[in-house]
């Protein structure tokens, strides 16, 4: 039995310890927002957060997630999901959309840790997330916008 928390909900699951977290969240918990791209930590489509870090769930055995907190695209906290969602819609980022939940989960860590990221910060944070449709320039624009929205949201909620 492995105990873990996913999007704030606790689970105790009977799973093989080497099952990748991606299988657990998609197949066992039905959270299909996270995508399977390569299965070998090369594309970033499967990015989720584990204790606040953007792990690649396709290669992370569930044994490593025991006792930890996983957040998927469905459970991203509003202070991050709201500005990202608005910016992604405003810039109209996705083409096919397959890579986008991974892109957004990676971008969420960036704007959490670096509220005003430079282009260089964006390159450093996002170069591991591949987009077959080459939406990179729109992703960059959207991250700049999301970081502005995030700080203005934070200012508004402080008033």
């Amino acid at each position: 039995m492995i105990k873990l928390t996913v999007n704030g909900k606790s689970y105790e699951l009977d799973l093989p310890s080497d099952m990748p977290v991606l299988w657990v969240i998609r197949d066992r918990l039905g959270l299909t927002g996270t995508k399977y791209g390569c299965g070998v930590a090369q594309c970033g489509a499967c990015t989720v957060h584990m204790d606040g870090e953007a792990i690649r769930s396709c290669v992370t055995p569930v044994s490593r997630a025991a006792g930890k907190s996983i957040v998927t695209i469905e459970g991203l906290e509003p202070s991050l999901s709201k500005p990202l969602q608005e910016a992604w819609t405003e810039i109209d980022v996705p083409q096919c959309g397959y890579c986008q939940s991974g892109q957004i989960m990676a971008a969420a860590i960036l704007i959490r840790d670096q509220p005003q990221p430079t282009d260089n910060d964006i390159d450093n944070a996002m170069a591991g997330n591949i987009c077959r449709c080459c939406t990179y320039l729109r992703i960059r624009q959207a991250i700049h916008l999301a970081s502005r929205l995030k700080s203005s949201n934070a200012m508004l909620s402080a008033i």
Binding site: R56, I109, D113, A127
Partner: peptide
């Protein structure tokens, strides 16, 4: 750095 920490992969 950021989403690209060693232990993420």
């Amino acid at each position: 750095l950021f989403a690209m920490k060693c232990k993420n992969c």
